[in-house]
């Protein structure tokens, strides 16, 4: 077994880190320009935070390097080694799921583009012409599309990963592989579709923006789209961990989840907007803060439709939801995973 190429990993890792910082800075520029925190200009505080973060990252890299040289074990090294050892399997499982999905369809991968567009058209016709939602929301078609794309992505990831453990029962009972791989690969393969559906979203935004009055152009805030998707991915993996481990013990989860996700969908402002309830039910806005999907959809709408980065507080809340769910999921999965093989 070849060991990890630590230098190469560090080099790529640092490049990705600095690229991410650069993208984030440009993306949030509109929020940094003016305003102050603790009496200091916002951009100064931001610069200091980035600096501290960078120092921490570099220190951790040095720490890992020292551990590697002395041959000692470290948590970071263990994680890297595991990923290195199983990356080929991860790659194979992700490509399998992706290939299987469209294997017998004529249009194949184009369905990833077509599906959100068709959904948008159907819902646009129903809700804007029949129910007249159009008047209350600006750029209603795009508003719908953002919601549909993100919600479908989440729904796809969660239902796919839910069956990941019981669906791979024949493997789990025969070969040892870290079981985390199964839900993670399911979410990854489903998220390729989410990534592909960004193409119609951005394409429609550009084309629609040119025809619509007032005109709508993409802004630099769109650079935050990878961050929004990454946070959604982390959230989905967390949910995947929870659902797939529950599924082993109670197959009812599958049916419960279909009902629950339908309720959740209608509880999320995808086809309607919160402004419609401002006068009738002002408490709804407070309650909505506890709906994770509201935050992700809002994030995307903000950068695509409203052409501005979400506030730092809003981004913080979204990140907290993502990593919180991930941590809870990981904990549940870790606790249950030794029992899986006895129940499959």
């Amino acid at each position: 077994m070849t060991d990890i190429n630590f230098k190469k990993i560090i080099r790529i890792g640092l490049i990705v880190y600095f690229a991410a910082i650069a993208l984030f800075t440009v993306g949030t520029l509109s929020r940094l320009k003016d305003g102050s925190v603790f009496g200091l200009p916002k951009f100064l505080v931001y610069g200091a935070v980035v600096l501290v973060l960078t120092v921490c990252v570099l220190l951790y890299v040095l720490h890992l390097q020292k551990r590697l040289k002395s041959g000692k074990d470290a948590f970071g090294l263990r994680v890297l080694r595991t990923i290195h050892k199983y990356r080929f399997l991860i790659e194979q499982l992700v490509t399998r799921d992706f290939k299987i999905k469209y294997k017998r369809s004529v249009l194949g991968v184009f369905w990833s583009f077509l599906n959100p567009l068709l959904m948008m058209i159907v819902q646009y016709v129903v809700f804007s012409y029949l129910l007249n939602f159009r008047g209350t929301v600006e750029h209603y078609a795009l508003y719908l599309l953002c919601g549909i794309v993100i919600w479908n992505g989440f729904n796809d990831c969660s239902t796919q990963s839910m069956r990941s453990i019981i669906g791979n029962a024949h493997l789990i009972t025969k070969v040892y592989v870290p079981k985390y791989i199964y839900p993670v690969t399911k979410v990854l393969s489903a998220s390729i579709n989410v990534l592909l559906s960004m193409v119609p979203l951005l394409l429609v935004t550009v084309i629609y923006g040119l025809i619509a009055t007032p005109k709508l152009y993409l802004s630099f805030a769109v650079l935050l789209l990878p961050l929004a998707l990454l946070l959604l991915l982390v959230f989905c993996i967390g949910i995947g961990f929870i659902l797939s481990s529950l599924m082993v013990f109670f197959h009812d989860i599958e049916f419960l989840w279909t009902v629950f996700s339908t309720i959740w969908m209608y509880a999320t402002p995808i086809i309607y907007s919160l402004e419609m309830f401002e006068s009738r039910a002002p408490w709804l806005i407070t309650v909505m803060q506890f709906n994770p999907m509201y935050h992700y959809i809002n994030f995307v709408r903000s950068i695509v439709l409203y052409r501005t980065a979400p506030t730092f507080l809003e981004m913080g809340i979204t990140a907290l939801i993502s990593f919180g769910t991930f941590a809870v999921g990981l904990l549940i999965f870790k606790k249950c995973q030794d029992k899986f093989v006895l129940y499959l």
Partner: peptide, 14 residues
């Protein structure tokens, strides 16, 4: 495709 998938499951390297 199955050769590669199954090989990966058995723990072979690429």
């Amino acid at each position: 495709e199955n050769i590669f998938l199954n090989g990966a499951i058995l723990g072979y390297e690429k």
